[in-house]
């Protein structure tokens, strides 16, 4: 299983992999906001955490359709389906590798991009922390969408459309935890814990559903 993790991570780093594309997209989304909104620093720091979260969510969705499609096209998926190793474990490891390849760079980039949005230190930390526990959930939810649309030639947009409604709770609790960390009356811990719970929930449900979909789509 470690071999699978290393392989997928390596693929996301190599030319054509999704790691850098996600970060560049994240940068593009966040960088144009100040131009659109205007140089009002107060407003920017107010909407900053939400913009970072939306940018990270969209960037995380960007590479999801590749999760199984390449493996299906080159026949690797057939071989994976035939092994003694349960498929949901294989899917789980693929998700974790995908997250490490595309989600983790977003989290590392988020404090730097926070500077563009005039976000203060505490809020910056809160954004990074919520992204750290929230983005795996997006990958796990996305795995289901990617598995369902694996047989479609241009499944990328469909994956985003399928996944986005399910990812909305992640966004809501992620952003409200960040605001809880900055604004006084709002609490930080409850939304943060709910975010953790969502991730744990989908870390079980996502791989199970995705492996069932992959089995059904084999033809």
């Amino acid at each position: 299983m470690w071999a699978l993790f290393v392989r997928d991570l390596r693929l996301s780093m190599r030319a054509g992999g999704g790691a850098l594309i996600g970060v560049l997209f994240f940068l593009a989304v966040v960088a144009v906001i100040p131009f659109g909104v205007g140089p009002d620093l107060k407003l920017l720091s107010l909407i900053g955490p939400a913009i970072l979260w939306i940018g990270a969510l969209l960037a995380a969705l960007l590479g999801l359709d590749r999760l199984f499609q390449h493996d299906r096209e080159d026949g690797s998926l057939d071989i994976m389906l035939m092994q003694e190793t349960p498929m949901f474990l294989t899917v789980l490891v693929k998700c974790l590798a995908h997250w490490a390849g595309t989600g983790l760079p977003l989290i590392i980039a988020s404090p730097v991009l926070g500077l563009l949005m005039n976000i203060k230190g505490v809020a910056m930390l809160a954004v990074a922390a919520t992204l750290l526990v929230g983005t795996p959930a997006i990958t796990f939810i996305g795995a289901v969408g990617a598995a369902v649309s694996v047989a479609l030639p241009r499944g990328g947009v469909l994956v985003s459309v399928l996944v986005l409604p399910l990812a909305v709770p992640v966004l809501i609790f992620g952003v409200s935890a960040v605001y809880g960390a900055v604004e006084d009356p709002a609490p930080f811990t409850p939304p943060f814990l709910i975010l953790c719970a969502i991730t744990l929930f989908f870390s079980v449900l996502g791989p199970l559903a995705a492996s069932a979909a992959l089995r059904a789509s084999a033809d």
Binding site: L4, R7, G16, G17, D74, S76, D78, T85
Partner: peptide
């Protein structure tokens, strides 16, 4: 099958090493 189950981006030995371990 018709497809070889190998990644064009990885070297031959990386590909085979992965399948052996997997």
């Amino acid at each position: 099958g018709h497809h070889n189950g190998m990644k064009p981006e990885l070297t031959v030995s990386e590909n085979l090493d992965f399948w052996q371990k997997f």
